[in-house]
Amino acid sequence: MGYTLNFAAVWRSFDLLLEGLALSLALAFGAILIGAAIGLFTAFCLISKNGFARRPAGIYVTIIRNTPILVLVLFTYFALPQLGFRLGKIESFVFTLALYSGAYLAEVFRAGLLSIPVGLREAGLAIGLTEIQIQTSIIAPLMFRNVLPSLSSTIISLFKDTSLAAAIAVPELTFEARKINVETFRVIETWIVASCLYVITCSILAALMRALERRLSVPR
């Protein structure tokens, strides 16, 4: 094989890759923030005794989890405008990823909520706390601690899923890498650098989540 690696062309466009990475992070951050709110609300619906809350939440989670995210991305960007619901590229992708992450986070939060012993809620009631006080002071903080390990892998997954935004020409990291690849013909170098940026970012995210886990861990 006579191929010689030459990164010079990729380095010249490195700032584009970094801009793409910044957008990838922003997409993931926005989607996770909205997705976490959707997920928490859905999780409470899923464990609710009220069928009117539980059933629609179950249907939402089932549909989203059984549909490939790329299909959702394409549907939101190309099909919804036909129904009069038009969003820009970035908004459309954040909306889709938030909806998608909401379904996954709902399951993560549901498991976290179910892992909290019922006795803690009763202890809260017994000292006169209201349901909202119990949820905010006892259940939510404990649930958050319980789900941190799985939340960490979901967040990293969702960050990697931002690469699918390239399919609708959102200028995130993968899109920029593809552009550089086409312009420079340095296929291997471009994708090595892009992959390294993904690996480094994911490793930093994982380390941050582990640090948060350590900080919030309950002393034993």
Binding site: G119, L120, A123, A126, I138, P141, V218
Partner: peptide
């Protein structure tokens, strides 16, 4: 309570 039910965090 029998199981104490202290808030562990």
């Amino acid at each position: 309570f029998q199981q104490f039910n202290l808030f562990p965090h």
